[in-house]
Amino acid sequence: MSVENPMPTSNETTETRQLILFLAEGEPNSIAARRNLENLLASAYDCQVQVQYVDVLEEYEFALEHRVLVTPTLLMIDPLPRVMIVGTLKDTETVITALRLRRSED
């Protein structure tokens, strides 16, 4: 699958991406999503990426607040616009595109 490199807007290049991964601890989909996200973030990008892991079973009100009805859900809360990605995050390129990230090597 060919994915076009997103054109980063000037103010996004130096910003930090703030992500929250909502997981149902112990569920296979959630385990896969965490592993896929960690693999994805092993590469270098043109900005800082911060990830917060939230177990919905512990923090259900936080999940409700963020409209997280399905797990796993990855949210980018900053910079706006917010991005919601649901699923195991298995398509690395789809996720990178959705998060408006650019690999440093490219």
Partner: peptide
């Protein structure tokens, strides 16, 4: 529960979030 309006799908998922909310 507000339904997520726009989201990107990548891989399988389930209603674990909702069940956690209900559980709580």
């Amino acid at each position: 529960p507000d339904m997520p309006v726009r989201f990107v799908e990548s891989g399988s998922f389930d209603i674990g979030g909702l069940l956690a909310i209900l559980d709580g």
